[in-house]
Amino acid sequence: MPQKKTDDRRLGIKGWALGGRWGFERYMYTVHRITGIGLVVYFLLHILVTSTRAFGGQHVWESLMGTLSSGVFKIGEFLVFAGFAIHGLNGIRLILIELGFATGKAIEPEYPYQTSVDKQRPIAIVAAAAAAVIILFGGYNIFLAH
C-alpha cells in the first residue's frame, strides 16, 4: 500500500499556549509545566552550587555566596520562589482532582452542558489567589524587607 502523503499538524510545544481560545485551566496547565521545568533546572543548579563547598573549599563557597546574594540573582531567587508557590499550590489542586474529589460524579448530560471544569473552578481560583498572595509576601521579603 502506498504511503499516504500528509501535512502533519501536530502543534508541538507551541500548543501549550498558542493552540487557540483556551480557558483558565489550560493556562494553569501551561504554567504548571513551565514552573516544573524551571524548578528541576534550579534543583540541578542548587546541587552544583552547594557541592562547591565540598570540592572547592570554604573560600570558594563564601566567594560564590557573596556573588549569589546580590544583584540579578535576587530576581532569580524571586522567580524560584514564585515557581515553587504556583507549582506547589496548583499541584495540591491537581492531586484533589486526580483522586476524584474535585470533579464530581457522572451526570446525565443536558444542554447547556455542565462539566467537571465548572465543578473544580473554585479550587483553581483559590489556588491561583493563594499563590498570588504568597508571591507578594515572598517578593516583599526578598526585595524590600532587608
Binding site: 480557558g23 496547565y29 448530560p109 462539566t115 471544569v117
Partner: peptide, 20 residues
Amino acid sequence: YGSECSVVCPKGVDPAKAIQ
C-alpha cells in the same frame, strides 16, 4: 488536566472527568 477536552466536547461527554 488541561481540561480543554471537556470544554470543546460538542456532546457534553466530559472526557477530563472520566480520566480523573
